[in-house]
Design a protein around this nucleic acid. Structure first.
Length: 235
DNA sequence: GCCAACGTTGGC
DNA sequence: GCCAACGTTGGC
């Protein structure tokens, strides 16, 4: 199956981060690497001092604290996340739907869990997330998205005609829920399934401690850079 | 479709 | 603030 690249190079090379510029020189001389290899190589070299682990620890803390972590680390770091999307059922939104969306971008609204919301609030433009299909056969990672718009009020919480999204406790003066915009950067050449990832989540394994397994119900979660890189290497 | 895990609500 | 009851997520 061909590797589908959707603006991937630009996404990485446009980072306002001198480290990324030097990566370009390291990644490109080979010239013949396919897109999947380029992603892995770029991430491999990417600075690992990000805030993702701090975010994990901050999960139960306030939004303000999470924001502070991010502000303190911004000049260094791209952070990584995992976003779950229903792969089946009436509310499904798959990688195919994302490909078909205008600009291959979508509003990540409808999050109605406080921890997930707090993680959402910590996202900054230029951060990356694994796009994950849940609730379906062959659950797993199917793509990489980039955050292109930081948290803004999720208007669907005020829509009383939308039974899934409406929150009677939310008002425009005191909104409770937020959304970000993400844009597809890479559709994986093949899905990396939960079944496959699980075997690496054993004690001592490369994915030990990943929130996908320890906090299975969290739909928006930070991912440690080494975990993100490892998963992409499975492509 | 079942059900374990776990988040949320609300009585006390 | 505790915790039982209830609702939801998501793997299987």
């Amino acid at each position: 199956m061909p590797v589908v690249v959707l603006g991937l190079n630009l996404a990485f090379l446009n980072q306002a981060n001198p480290f990324m510029v030097s990566l370009r020189k390291r990644v490109h001389p080979a010239g013949r690497q396919n897109a999947a290899q380029r992603v892995s190589a770029t991430l491999e070299g990417a600075r690992t001092k990000t805030t993702s682990s701090e975010l994990e620890m901050a999960l139960d803390r306030s939004v303000e604290k999470i924001r502070k972590y991010r502000l303190g680390a911004k000049k260094f770091a791209v952070a990584y996340y995992l976003l779950k999307s229903e792969g089946f059922g009436p509310r499904k939104f798959t990688i195919d739907d994302l490909v078909a969306s205008p600009l291959r971008s979508t509003s990540w609204d409808g999050v109605r869990n406080f921890q997930a919301r707090n993680v959402l609030l910590s996202m900054q433009t230029g951060d990356f997330a694994l796009f994950y299909h849940s609730n379906c056969k062959n659950a797993g990672v199917t793509g990489i998205v980039e955050v292109v718009k930081e948290a803004y009020v999720d208007e669907t919480q005020f829509d009383s005609s939308n039974l899934d999204a409406y929150d009677s406790k939310a008002t425009p003066e005191n909104p409770r829920w937020y959304a970000v915009d993400v844009k597809l950067q890479l559709r994986l050449p093949r899905p990396i399934t939960l079944e496959e990832l699980k075997q690496y989540a054993v004690p001592g394994g490369p994915l030990e401690g990943m929130l996908l397994f320890t906090r299975a119900r969290l739909s928006v979660q930070p991912v440690r850079p080494e975990h993100f890189q490892f998963i992409l290497r499975q492509m």
